[in-house]
Amino acid sequence: MCSPLPLPPEDAVRVPGMLLIHTGDDDDVWNDVLSRMGELPGMRQAAGHEAVADAATQPSLRRRLIVAHDPTWRGATVEDVTAALEQQPGAWVPNLILLTDDRTTNNAQARPLLAYTCYQKDVDSFWITPRQSAMTYLALGHPGASWAIERFVDTAPADLEYDLEEDEEPDEESFYEPMGVEMESLANPPRYTRPAHELPLLDHEWDLLVRTDFTDDAAWGSLLQQVSQPVNGDTSDNFLDQLTCVNDPAFADATPEQVMAQVRPHPDRGDTVADVILIADATTLRGSGHRVLAIPLTDDIGLTFRVGAGQIGTMLPNLGLSNQGIEDWRGSDT
Results as ranks from 00 to 15, higher is better:
Ala83Cys: 02
Leu61His: 15
Glu86Thr: 12
Arg286Phe: 00
Asp328Ser: 14
Pro41Gly: 03
Tyr119Pro: 00
Ile149Ala: 00
Asp203Gln: 12
Leu138Met: 09
Asp167Glu: 14
Val307Asp: 01
Thr82Lys: 11
Asn188Ser: 12
Asn107Gly: 07
Glu172Phe: 09
Pro112Ile: 01
Arg131Val: 07
Asp159Glu: 12
Ser288Met: 07
Arg64Asn: 02
Trp220Ser: 07
Gly325Arg: 13
Ile97Lys: 01
Thr100Ala: 05
Val307Pro: 00
Leu224Ala: 12
Leu208Phe: 04
Thr82Cys: 10
Asp300Met: 11
Ser174Pro: 01
Asp234Ile: 06
Ile326Tyr: 08
Asp271Gln: 10
Ser236Ile: 00
Glu173Tyr: 07
Tyr116Asp: 05
Met179His: 05
Thr314Cys: 05
Asn247Leu: 10
Val210Glu: 02
Pro230Leu: 07
Leu114Tyr: 02
Glu327Lys: 10
Ala252Trp: 03
Asp328Glu: 12
Met183Arg: 11
Pro8Gly: 07
Val67Arg: 10
Ser146Tyr: 10
Ala134Phe: 07
Pro6Lys: 01
Gly180Cys: 06
Trp127Glu: 10
Gln226Arg: 12
Asp11Phe: 15
Asp122Glu: 14
Thr117Ser: 15
Gly24Ala: 10
Gly42Trp: 08
Pro317Gly: 07
His49Met: 09
Arg191Ala: 12
Tyr176Glu: 04
Ala252Leu: 09
Val52His: 02
His266Ser: 15
Thr314Gln: 10
Asp207Tyr: 01
His142Lys: 08
Glu198Asp: 14
Tyr137Ala: 02
Gln58Gly: 02
Gln88Asn: 03
Thr72Val: 06
Pro200Ala: 06
Gly270Cys: 10
Thr136Gly: 03
Asp203Lys: 10
Trp329Ile: 01
Ala115Glu: 05
Ala218Arg: 14
Val52Pro: 00
Tyr176Arg: 06
Gly144His: 06
Thr235Phe: 13
Tyr162Glu: 04
Gly38Tyr: 00
Ser133Thr: 15
Leu7His: 05
Arg44Thr: 04
Thr244Met: 11
Ala280His: 06
Tyr119Glu: 12
Leu278Asn: 03
Pro189Ile: 03
Leu224Phe: 03
Ser35Met: 10
Leu316Ile: 00
Val292Ile: 15
Ala309Tyr: 01
Gly287Leu: 03
Asp300Ile: 04
Leu85Phe: 13
Tyr116Lys: 02
Pro189Met: 05
Asn238Tyr: 09
His49Glu: 13
Val292Ala: 00
Leu223Met: 02
Leu96Ile: 05
Asp70Pro: 04
Pro8Asn: 05
Ser125Arg: 04
Trp329Phe: 15
